[in-house]
Design a protein around this nucleic acid. Structure first.
Lengths: 194, 194
DNA sequence: CCCATCGGGATACGAACGTATCAATGACAG
DNA sequence: CTGTCATTGATACGTTCGTATCCCGATGGG
């Protein structure tokens, strides 16, 4: 699976913008071409058909997100502190900047579609190490209060924080509210600093 | 806003079935008519236009869900025990039977669309008492361990359980796994039985 | 008995869709 | 210079979409 560049990259990014701002149902070949500033024929040439294009757009966004997440986490002030890592990992799920906001909106549109399209479902399901396992490992490494089960905590945390992020998209919740909730649960789970 | 009955009800239920099994993009006037076993003209007659129909279908599903939830909860063996109420309330978010499974799939399809359609967003946003407040109240009424903040717990629980439900739709998780996670967190939050 | 109104059948229309076809351009190897 | 291959422009085709139009049967109050 080659890295996406040039015209193909340009077209895929047009898909993201349309899906995020106007929804996947507006992502027609003609609209995508206009957004990417090429003719429809160019879209047709670089991607066999529309389904191919939309699946590629999702896969590429997925990889881009992982890449950017790793970059942001590697740029932390103290990347050796598991507590910092844990918080940063969970915050990757939140639409805290324009890039993550766009990405979450696109992912939400695709998620609904993935319920009826196996090729799209595969993109969501096929990840070797699940995010929950990573979070559970970080919880364990951060030092845990007695009677805390890292796996069970990770299962609820990942889903819960994602849900709070979706609320943020709908302006049903504020960043401050989410930050308070996240702080509360991290304090609850983790042992006090040594 | 009148209760939906007769032909209108029949058509709206066809929208649900199509949205759940084949996705909202397949819910065309002609497909809906065929699924409801009427001619397209009948759909056109009972609903001004397609947007009207789809918004009505979402509103009706929303009301139906609340109604059925209340019925199920009222039918509990011991509806005066707040712990039982709390568990039942959270389980309403999970696709534990065919009705809830269909409903969750339909809601997921609409949720993505609601990000770009204000009329649909209003259906998701406009509920007087939020589910989180209800859950927080049930937590408080159930008796709580010291140092537990019911509101913060409710915020993560509602989003987290919803997320687990979506995983169940994708067969990324089992019912047993979810049950174990839910048990763990209820035990963690609530004080021991007196 | 009449006719107005409700519910619905049959069909048509214009727009937008994904895709196919055919020709042209440009770079570059021989 | 020439031929080849990647890329693109222009345009057309067949389908499906939402909706509009026109008509008819039934029903019920005057």
């Amino acid at each position: 699976m080659p890295e996406l560049a040039g015209r193909r990259r340009q077209i895929v990014e047009a898909v993201w913008r349309i899906a995020a701002e106007r929804g996947l149902q507006m992502a027609t070949i003609r609209e995508i071409a206009a957004e990417a500033d090429v003719t429809p024929r160019v879209v047709q040439y670089h991607f066999t058909d529309k389904h191919h294009l939309l699946v590629t757009a999702l896969q590429t966004l997925h990889r881009d997100n992982e890449h950017r997440s790793r970059e942001r986490i590697a740029a932390l002030r103290d990347p050796s502190d598991p507590r910092v890592l844990l918080r940063a990992t969970l915050e990757e799920l939140l639409p805290l900047d324009e890039q993550r906001r766009t990405s979450l909106r696109v992912m939400t549109a695709y998620y609904a579609w993935s319920l009826t399209d196996p090729a799209l479902a595969a993109v969501f399901l096929h990840q070797e190490h699940s995010l929950e396992d990573l979070v559970a490992a970080l919880i364990k490494a951060s030092g845990v209060r007695p009677s805390i089960d890292p796996a069970r905590e990770a299962d609820l945390l990942v889903g819960g924080i994602s849900g709070l992020g979706l609320d943020l998209l709908h302006r049903r919740r504020t960043r401050a509210n989410i930050r308070r909730t996240l702080d509360y649960h991290l304090n609850r789970i983790l042992a006090q600093q040594p």
